[in-house]
Write a protein that binds this DNA or RNA. Sequence first.
RNA 1: GUGGAUGUAGCUCAGGUGGUAGAGCACUGGAUUGUGGUUCCAGCGGUCGUGGGUUCAAAUCCCAUCAUCCACCCCA
Length: 421
Amino acid sequence: MNQRLKPVRGMRDILPEDSARFSLIEDTFRSVLSGYSYEEIRLPIVESKNLFDRGLGESTDAVSKEMYSFHDRDSSELALRPEGTASCARAIVNHSMAHEDKPRLWYAGPMFRHERPQAGRYRQFQQVGAEAFGYSGPAIDFELIQIVTNVLESLGLIESVTLLINNIGDATARARFRDALVNYLNPYESDLDSDSRTRLHKNPMRILDSKNERTQTILEGAPKLKEFVGDHSTERFELILGMLSEAQIAYEVADQLVRGFDYYTDSVFEWVTDQIGAQDAVCAGGRYDGLIELLGGKPTPGIGFAAGVDRIALLKSETQEDASYRSTDVYLIALSEDQRSYVSEIAKRIRQGTNLRVREHTEPGRMGSKMRWADKSGATWAVIAGESEEVELNVSIKWLRSDREQLRVPLVGMLEVLKAA
RNA sequence: GUGGAUGUAGCUCAGGUGGUAGAGCACUGGAUUGUGGUUCCAGCGGUCGUGGGUUCAAAUCCCAUCAUCCACCCCA
């Protein structure tokens, strides 16, 4: 890449071929979500920093270390959103949307976290998320999981991912568990890896998914979160698992699965893959029954997921043959500049009469060169017009991807030939 | 924030022990004045990431810095 001017660290250009993949993924979410009657909401990219401090929790890495925060001209503290759920919940509160209705919403857009870039991890990344407010029964958990499953099936990726699910209980249960865990681990403090030692004081539950073997061995005798979760929550969780089994959606209950943001409660879930490197979560979500109240609304249960479009696109390109990307169906060649207006007329007719993607060769040059560009464009046909075609109101149609012989047809019969293919 | 690897043409990469840059692909033209995908010939194309230092001389050695990739961490 040219060294002089380039995107800032962790930001990148999504070039046309990748962009087409992104669009396909987003369109698939859009279409499946629409089938479940989820409504689109468009949320600001910039919010008050305060929203994330309160919503996600000030001790989380996303807020304390990775947030793009800055002072506005009037010195108020703003931030680029690191995720979408907090904004969505704020909108629910601001517009009293959960008073007369139980909204099911979705959004898509860029999120920002100041992390060290890595495979599948960028400082600006694209998410599609869905949130449902006002539902406390297990069927909504199931519905959201089913939505994501449908999307992944439709994209041909369901075999490449594993659904992990866990129940982390409510805030009280977690607080009691946290105390018990710290009490258990304290005597082993010097045997823990250094990251876990730090987390013991800051965010002990994070120790559970440590990759350090020694730490994992120590954890074998530790108290289990599920022993602290209330009966009601456990029952609810069992009902979700039952629905998944009945719908033949494969899952693994993952005791160690915890979420990075403070707002999560009860059921949490995540789709992971082993095919795109260390950043293995392609979609994750869970329930957050306390969030709306935390942001000043009346108590309202909530649940949602967020999918990482960049990672799903990466997974798609890693696991599937390139369905040879093409941008052009018809490549139009004027033999000389004298036929320019005739060729424009031909282009107009094809664009108006079909959905074909028509590209005109606009530069002068010799015929061989024009044909080479026609070939490279990936077009199915080259449509060629020289002086004799113009005089006789004909076009020459050449098949570029087959041995079929070149045809010369009257202009009025051209669309029929192109549509017949 | 920590660690490892890597930065040479648009792309993929060569350039032992310092002597001032090369190939393939791509692109343009020609062989072939209205027909691509094969071949042959020619041409275009480089602040050797950036800034210092050592030296008569640095892509090459030293220092710093930036960036990319991968992993830790974190997470979508």
